[in-house]
């Protein structure tokens, strides 16, 4: 399993590669990105050169699904992608079907690969078939698809020669279908003074039971309501829906042959990024070593035990 990491500054490149990253990705102004933080202190062209000189691949995220552009703006965007393609981008991470459609209809095909971002959730093989028509070469699995449920999607990818990628369960945020989550940002609701987004839908949250009031109780199931209310109160105070990703799911993804493990907290400081990428490498190596040493079945509980004891990067 290889590691792909975000980077936002020139000084992060070498330490991330040293920590174990096999690919680096970033986002740049002019390319609409889901997470609106952008590369600083170095041009993307020079970043490509530096990454390639270190023998690694350079990816660019243009993964906003809502690219609001008029015809001229859309043409500019396509031109910008082509320029980055010519400058050495190895892949673009994309979520917008309209951008994929635009690129497909262009007479000049990109040299770079296209990766389907997890913010355009692909949970089934029919959706996968839909996106493969646009030339997707890697599927970044949404964190709301558990490993064992993803087995058919992964099998389909193997058959079609499509690479697969997951997020590290320890360093990822939204508990909902994050590409469609409208509590990330207060676009519809409003925050109290000083509050910022995230705590409602990300692991963390205030971590306290919140008041919940049952509505429209079905008399036939009224006996279940207090227990459901207690569960929901705790979850709403801890980031919302429960998370499928954990040590066990990572192990299962690993044994199902997922090729890439992603670290994507773009806002982390450089030293934290490098430390966390080291932790990704260590976790993948641990799974590999335990399987080699003990066999898959015996390795699984040992791996889960070791990772459950893990206490932060």
């Amino acid at each position: 399993m290889k590691i792909v990491s975000c980077f936002m500054e020139e000084k992060e490149i070498a330490p991330l590669i040293e920590a174990g990253a096999d690919e680096l990705y970033t986002s740049v102004p002019g390319l609409p990105s889901f997470d609106e933080t952008y590369l600083r202190g170095i041009t993307i062209e020079n970043a490509f050169k530096k990454i390639h000189a270190l023998g690694k691949k350079a990816l660019v995220a243009a993964n906003s699904s809502q690219i609001v552009l008029d015809t001229r703006g859309l043409k500019k965007l396509a031109d910008r992608l082509r320029a980055l393609d010519a400058a050495g981008a190895d892949a673009f991470i994309i979520s917008s079907p309209s951008l994929l459609s635009l690129l497909r209809s262009s007479p000049r095909r990109l040299r770079a690969d296209l990766h389907l971002s997890s913010v355009q959730p692909c949970f089934n093989t029919a959706a996968l078939r839909f996106f493969l028509r646009f030339g997707i070469r890697r599927l970044i699995l949404p964190t709301q698809l558990p490993a064992l449920e993803a087995a058919e999607v992964l099998k389909f990818c193997r058959r079609e020669g499509v690479e697969t990628e997951i997020f590290d369960y320890r360093f990822f945020g939204c508990n909902y279908v994050n590409g469609r989550c409208n509590i990330h940002l207060p676009r519809f609701h409003t925050f109290k003074k000083g509050a910022k987004g995230g705590a409602l839908c990300r692991c963390g949250g205030p971590r306290q039971a919140l008041p919940v009031k049952p509505l429209g109780v079905n008399p036939e199931r009224a006996g279940e309501v207090p227990a459901i209310a207690r569960r929901l109160a705790l979850r709403m105070g801890g980031g919302g829906a429960p998370r499928f990703y954990n040590a066990a799911s990572f192990f299962d993804f690993f044994t199902l042959g997922v090729g890439w493990l992603k670290y994507g907290v773009r806002a982390d400081p450089p030293a934290v990024k490098a430390r966390k990428v080291g932790q990704l490498r260590a976790m993948a190596d641990l799974a590999g070593a335990l399987i080699k040493e003990r066999g898959q079945r015996a390795a699984r509980p040992l791996f889960i035990e070791r990772m459950t004891a893990w206490r932060g990067a």
């Binding site: 709301q144 064992l148 909902y176 429960p242």
Partner: peptide
């Protein structure tokens, strides 16, 4: 506002050893 696949109301808690 938002939708999950892991249901906040109904899904039992998932422990580190559970791969659902």
């Amino acid at each position: 506002l938002t939708t999950a696949r892991a249901c906040a109301v109904g899904l039992p808690d998932i422990g580190p050893e559970d791969s659902v």
